[in-house]
Design a protein around this nucleic acid. Structure first.
Length: 164
DNA sequence: GCCAACGTTGGC
DNA sequence: GCCAACGTTGGC
């Protein structure tokens, strides 16, 4: 049974993998490997469905910012990088027979012409109480309310319109 | 580079 | 099953 799309936020460090790297991928699609946190994994493995929307957030940037949006184009499957001894995220406890870590594929929707810095996000009324803005929040994959998602997209578009 | 806030690990 | 030690995240 179909359900409405859900909304998510996924963090990435732009020096490692940015939304511009996603834009440059063939078909502008990539697998979101390297997540090694159980809560984040569970969201990807159990709850992300085709067509769900993703807000791409650049952490550890100056300033950290919302960079654009994407959508889920493939539901969860084992993260093979966990089996690769040479991979930064190698985990000997994960095996092909009994995979511990999972990932999804996402496809770029939009790179914001004007990104929204953390300070700007904090100024948006609709984002009060958003998980991302909570002190000490570290989850790299987290659910986002539709209202929050829409407010961020709207604010990014308004900023771009004002700048042009 | 610092460090607060977490999450994980492993001894007991 | 507790919890101290350790490792990581991520804003600043």
């Amino acid at each position: 049974m179909a359900r409405g799309a859900k909304y998510w936020l996924m963090k990435t460090e732009p020096e490692t993998y940015s939304i511009h790297d996603l834009e440059a991928e063939s078909n502008q699609t990539t697998h979101w490997d390297g997540v090694r946190n159980y809560q984040a994994r569970n969201f990807m493995r159990d709850e992300m469905k085709l067509g769900d929307r993703v807000l791409v957030y650049h952490s550890n940037a100056k300033p950290p910012h919302a960079a654009g949006t994407a959508k889920i184009v493939k539901e969860s499957y084992p993260d093979h990088t966990a089996w690769d001894e040479n991979d930064k995220h190698y985990d000997p406890k994960s095996t092909p027979e009994n995979p511990r870590w999972f990932m999804v594929d996402i496809k770029l929707d939009e790179v914001f012409d004007q990104t929204l810095g953390l300070d700007e996000l904090r100024e948006i009324k609709a984002l009060e109480g958003m998980e991302l803005l909570r002190r000490g929040s570290r989850l790299s994959v987290q659910p986002v309310g539709k209202g929050e998602f829409d407010a961020i997209v709207k604010a990014a578009h308004k900023k771009a319109a004002d700048a042009s």
